[in-house]
Design a protein around this nucleic acid. Structure first.
Lengths: 232, 232
DNA sequence: TCATCAACGTCAATGGCGTTGGCATAAGGA
DNA sequence: TCCTTATGCCAACGCCATTGACGTTGATGA
């Protein structure tokens, strides 16, 4: 039985689809990202992706081994967005802060994609380049290798953790977002003081705040800690 | 067209299934949690859940409005596990640290469930009870309401962010876990120093570390910051 | 010039999924 | 006893990812 094989490179000019579209890996990834933003995480299906490309669902399988393979490609695309045009300022703390915020913003710009790719290790070029850059900043700052790696892990963990949390909230289907918002308004704001004195006392403050990102603050805490370590 | 209605309470004795099982909401949630642990997030389907209960898939819809409703019930069950048997020690810092670790451990004990429920607001009893408890600890410590709410949000954000990240890693299908591990070993450990000097120099350190949770450290940083705020 | 061959778009089919309408049955209440 | 209601089950709908087979295209080389 001849197994379907996905070629690694584009050695041959592509034949256009019925609708005249010429496909490439990059085009498919970009289309998938657009579909994710417009239709949510559940809206990205092989059928719909094919349709958006002016092609058949099965055509996607000529380019990717399956949806998981496509998702990893999307994950790497996020890192490409995050790192595009980055330049060192010479100051490791502002470099690291900038890198963290770039990753965070790349996730928030495509929350549905971010949720799908959460915690995957792709080993693909753009993700590897980001790792190389971060380690370079830390080693260039003078951290011994062991410390640099420890801070690298803490930095990545913190960046990804908050990014995934925020993205997961943003990526919820509109219906779920509205249901959750209703729960805040209807449940928390109306709990009786007799059974829930602390929620009742702070209900207005609790419900008022929605989604002012906590990540930048956490990032600064991490950088302060690393600075102390470098001086000490 | 008669819409299927899910009754809120169990006012009537249940009729056993063909296999003699008597169903309750609680039993279904517990069975779903077991299926999640044993078969992964994709392994929880209405058909399989029905089968595991000795019933039909559609029977689940007599108890829950749909899979989303079931997932919210599962989310609340995680909070029940986290809070079971909790008692205040009288010291707000150790109380808060304990609560954070309890939530973290509840997530890690059911990573597949944690991923499904990430960032949902259920407003159901156990989640609300946890919120009431946390706010009670902070207000009892002497924080003014505005500060208590701010720290509550930071605490919850941090706890959930790291829990979701760790759970997402643990919840990956075995195949994906192995693929990611291979990427670490095969890609990062073999990058040439010419193109990736920093990864090449620290490859052994990078690859050696897998999943020593960063959350407790981050939690302690948060508590130190809150302490300073209370004293200042 | 033309045969060969790999690339790749499309079709049809498979087996799984969530969900729902309809029906049969059993438990209480009257 | 009869009626209402809860509830289990069946069959069906439309969706999904994936794959084998087939036809067509373009590049290559003799």
């Amino acid at each position: 039985m001849p197994k379907r094989v996905v070629p690694e490179t584009d050695r041959r000019r592509r034949r256009p689809t019925k609708q005249g579209q010429v496909l490439t890996h990059q085009l498919i990834v970009e289309t998938a990202l657009r579909m994710l933003r417009e239709h949510g995480a559940d809206g990205l299906t092989a059928r719909r992706l094919g349709l958006a490309l002016g092609a058949d669902a099965s055509t996607v399988y000529r380019y990717f081994r399956g949806m998981d393979d496509l998702i990893l490609a999307i994950a790497d695309e996020l890192f490409a967005h995050a790192m595009a045009g980055w330049r060192s300022t010479g100051d490791w703390r502002s470099d690291l802060r900038e890198l963290g915020l770039r990753i965070h913003h790349a996730y928030l710009a495509h929350p549905q994609a971010a949720v799908l790719t959460a915690s995957r290790v792709t080993g693909r070029p753009n993700e590897v380049a980001a790792d190389e850059t971060i380690l370079g900043v830390l080693r260039g700052a003078g951290f011994p290798d062991a410390d640099a790696v420890r801070i690298y892990h803490a930095f990545i963990d913190q960046s990804l953790a908050f990014s995934i949390l925020d993205a997961a909230t943003l990526a919820l289907p509109v219906a779920a977002r509205e249901a959750d918002e209703e729960v805040w308004q209807d449940t928390y704001a109306r709990l009786p003081a007799a059974t829930h004195p602390n929620i009742a006392a702070t209900a207005a403050l609790l419900v008022a705040r929605m989604n002012d990102s906590a990540y930048p603050t956490a990032l600064d805490m991490l950088l302060s800690s690393a600075s102390a370590q470098l001086r000490g």
